[in-house]
Write a protein that binds this DNA or RNA. Structure first.
Length: 442
DNA sequence: AAGTGCGACAACCGCCAGTCT
DNA sequence: GAGACTGGCGGTTGTCGCACT
């Protein structure tokens, strides 16, 4: 083998990955000069032999007693990620992938906990898989969490709240396992009230429902859409990819947008009607995206934050989005325009984050009372429409102006449609409403 | 054939909490 | 009680192979 080192499990590791200090023959280093880089099969054998005889743990002793030129940390990592006999090799199965998505929706970036629920898989594997997946989904403009998983996780949380217990991963796992038998109750928004108790927002950090501590950027169910020059369409993408049929973009829908959707001059709702300081860009998913033309959702010439500039997919999702959206945007109405939103500035004089703007792009509720969205929402009910129309939210106070929902993103539209189907007509399950609302509005 | 982008993967790093001395 | 040590965890980096243009 010229350029690869056999890692003992059949995998190859690039030779160039090795650090200068990592040479084939273990060095007789002094304290603090441990070998780095890929493990050789000899080192693996030594480590396996030692752990077999002495068991796991006390990893620094491994280094001291076995002659391995590796630090204890490195030994532990190697053992845990590659040498453990119970490790499952190979690609994730579909079931495992689904579990990962569910678990991440529930736990956030708790890779170790997730690994504990996936026998034979390591946190590193899961982490790598998720990071790769997240990039792919973001690039293709697809929801990170499929709607059914959103609901399932949401329902799991609701169950756990109902029984007044703090769920551990195992229990939730059981809840979530019942993917096919779960009946999703429906929700009537008519009487929904935003709970005042903020404790209901307690969610694991980074999870689907996390409350972000730093809202400057964040990933969410409606990820920032990148034009994908080339998209390798995985089965997953095809599974979750929204399909924007021509009929779907009916006049009713396009009328929700201000401007000519055909020339890319769309001015819709709040976010795209103003410059986006964060450079948020509204685009069609790449499955529909044509590089040669501006998407109808696109705001031309607005730079897109690079993937690297975005907090590594760990920020909270809808909750902070909606919170900031409603908190930081003043809703104004004119007879001709449904809404125009302009950013406010916080007390410190700092402009609100781009997330707030992007969040406003997800959903803008018309409100004559401006920021007092909570009060307004209480009186909202859902107008159920058939056919290509998507749900409209109207207030009993002023239906003429309120009878619109402004959505700037096709994926948001889809999810609204999904949500509408999922939550309407719920008969009195307040806790579920709370969760549903929690999910939808943060 | 060359260039480019992406996925997969391994391994390192830094931080932190628990334990030990 | 304080500091050192240890192990665990999450984030990040870097490289390769492959697919595609």
């Amino acid at each position: 083998m010229s350029s690869m080192t056999n890692m003992g499990d059949g995998r190859k590791v690039p030779k160039s990955r090795r650090s200068p200090s990592s040479v084939e023959e273990p060095t007789t280093e002094g304290e603090g000069h441990f070998k780095k880089g890929p493990w050789t099969s000899i080192e693996d054998a030594i480590l396996v032999d030692y752990v077999t005889k002495h068991g796991e743990g006390n990893w620094n002793a491994v280094q001291r007693n076995s002659g391995l030129a590796r630090c204890g940390k490195s030994c532990r990592l190697r053992w845990a990620n590659h040498l453990r006999p119970d490790l499952k090799k190979g690609a994730f199965t579909e079931e495992e992938e689904r579990r990962i998505i569910e678990l991440h929706a529930k736990m956030g970036n708790k890779w170790a906990r997730m690994a504990a629920e996936l026998p034979g898989r390591t946190d590193n594997e899961i982490k790598n898989y998720w990071n790769t997946r997240i990039k792919r989904m973001q690039r293709s403009g697809l929801p990170i969490y499929p709607p059914d998983i959103c609901l399932r996780v949401m329902h799991g949380n609701q169950e756990s709240q109902n029984v007044g217990r703090l769920t551990d991963g195992v229990n939730q796992h059981d809840d979530l396992s019942q993917t096919d038998t779960l009946n999703i109750p429906e929700l009537d928004f008519k009487h929904v009230k935003i709970p005042e108790d903020p404790s209901i927002f307690d969610m694991p950090e980074n999870s689907m429902f996390e409350q972000s501590s730093d809202s400057s950027y964040g990933y969410n169910m409606f990820p920032i859409m990148h034009p994908a020059k080339r998209l390798r369409e995985s089965a997953e993408i095809m599974q979750y990819a929204p399909v924007y049929e021509e009929d779907y973009m009916s006049d009713e829908i396009t009328n929700q947008f201000h401007g000519d959707p055909l020339n890319g001059n769309t001015c819709c709702s709040s976010s795209s009607s103003m410059p986006l300081s964060g450079g948020m860009k509204l685009e069609l998913p790449s499955l529909q995206y044509l590089e040669t033309q501006q998407g109808i959702w696109d705001t031309p010439a607005s730079p897109l934050p690079s993937l690297e500039s975005v907090d590594t997919l760990s920020s909270g999702l809808l909750e902070p989005i909606m919170y900031q959206s409603t908190k930081h945007f003043q809703v104004q109405e004119t007879p001709d325009e449904a809404v125009k939103c302009k950013p406010e500035w916080d007390e410190s004089g700092e402009p609100y984050s781009p997330l707030a703007q992007s969040s406003a792009s997800v959903l803008t509720m018309c409100s004559p009372d401006g920021p007092q969205w909570v009060e307004t929402i209480q009186d909202h009910n859902i107008k159920h429409e058939l056919g290509t129309e998507f749900p409209t939210y109207c207030s009993g106070k002023d239906e003429k102006n309120m009878n619109q929902i402004h959505v700037t993103r096709p994926d948001a539209l889809l999810d609204l449609a999904w949500f509408e189907n999922s939550v309407v007509n719920c008969d009195g399950d307040k806790s579920f409403r709370k969760d549903a609302f929690n999910t939808f509005f943060g």
